[in-house]
Amino acid sequence: MAEGQRKGHMDLTILLQTVLAGVLVGGLYGLIGMGMAINFGVLRIINLAQGELLMVGMYVCYWVFTLWGLDPLLSPVVTIPFLFVLGVVIHRFLLTPLIRARALPENQILLTVGVGLVLTNAALLAFTSNYRTITTSYSASLITLGSIAVSLPAVLAFGIAMLVSSALWLFLMKTDLGKCIRATAQDPDAALLMGVNVERISVITFGIGAALEGAAGSLLVLVYYLFPALGGIFTLKAFIVVVLGGLGSTLGALLGGIVLGLAESLGAVFVSTGYKDAIGFIVFVLMLIFRPAGLVGKARM
């Protein structure tokens, strides 16, 4: 009897801890996915270099920490502008000419593949393939709630991811620039007629999409490690997140991220760790079949 009770308690603890782990990781997935979602909303293309931008963000964070001791939690101050500029440059000099020439969308996507290859391999040449980690004073700290323990960096990363997401939402809803971006996403032709400089908006949006990866990179460093080839893994995750959230919806992406995080962690516990990622894809295909507009329906942005 006592044994059974103990076991029941253990199961509940496992469930709670699994859900918590899923949500915490999901918040990061969400932030990574938002960058891709906002790009998709305005440009109508999937940026397959999104993960590589995240990688660049992580290296920037790593170097400002190693060289100047800037805490990763404060490093978004550097990574966000850095990635914004990088995104603007990529769009202005590579994507804009394609869009002006009305190139096929698959050409634009392939272009981002090329950009990703260059970024990954430039990082490989510059920083070698070594794995790097950052250790801060709070790296190994834990928060314990009864029998549940969560690592402090994971909680901090989640919290800041939520802050950045809210800031983005406010920006899109309340500022003029944000309204222009939403108008462009809804109907570029109408926006153009209303006097919105669509080309400029699309450059800025790409910059914001990249900047979000900068922020995500700063946070991911806290719980993960970095190496040049990590982009591909996260491009795929972002991709699933974006579809779950309904293509182009930033709020949906955040939700999609959390759903993906939960699906992965619950799947790992109750099905098999090996199939963990497959569960993500099954959810993905089910979404496509039953709710192609995404979790939050038709609303964009």
């Binding site: 801890q17 699994t18 992965e264 790992a268 098999s272």
Partner: peptide
């Protein structure tokens, strides 16, 4: 007996099963 995909951010779900 758990295989996993290399490069995961979070191994806690798998580790919780071991802990149990």
């Amino acid at each position: 007996f758990e295989p996993y995909e290399a490069g995961a951010i979070d191994f806690k779900p798998m580790l919780l099963k071991v802990k149990a």
